[in-house]
Amino acid sequence: MLEVSDAVVRYGAITALHGITFEVNEGEIVTLLGANGAGKSTTLRMVSGLQSPVSGSITFQGRDISHTRAHDFAKLGVSHVPEGRRIFPQMSVEENLEMGAFRRRGSTSGDLEKIYETFPILKERRKQLGSNLSGGEQQMLAIGRALMSQPTLLLLDEPSMGLAPMIVDTIFRIIGEIRASGTTVLLVEQNAAHALRLADRGYVLENGRVVLSGPSSELLVDPRVRAVYLGEDVEAAS
């Protein structure tokens, strides 16, 4: 569904991605792992058109999208939940959700109900301002807003950032439900344990390169992953 091959991204003189290659197949949850500065967010920015690669290619459903502009991605069926959630602080929850359907014509009330079913708390808070929500509620709102455009591919940038463990569990359970309902998910995470338990496959990024990839079950037991991302002692792991 989504193939990235040998993509290079530069910010001025600094190369953030030194040619990365990965793919996401329909119906999968794929996770990109890595430490701060590994290039996870840059990869997601690239796959959502916010940053163009200087070389390499990105294809989505067979179409080259390496130079498609960010605002046209919604039309393609790619929806990006940006890092830090970026909900509209002075719009109500419902207004935020309605903005998610901006590119669609016709009634959206059915979709609104579906989002409220997935996130009952948003229904309770629908008249409240985005800025008055808790972090977890804001994350749910950001995901709900992205779903309002009926994406076939959902890009999630660190949905667990700054949230309490219990909320993280809820969010991840919902990501699983979203996949079950037919949306492919590309998930960028620092919380490797959680992400790998949910995802089908994973890629580990380091300094702008893919250093490791494979099915989640394998990555979960890989000593290098365990040492670096799951906080285990290298000695103990080996």
């Binding site: 719009m91 901006f102 807003r145």
Partner: peptide, 22 residues
């Protein structure tokens, strides 16, 4: 719709862009 797009851009341009607003 245009007015709502303006509000969205004013409040958060990146978010607006990721929702398909040019």
């Amino acid at each position: 719709r245009v007015g709502r797009a303006w509000t969205a851009i004013r409040e958060d341009e990146v978010a607006a862009e990721s929702l398909g607003i040019n």
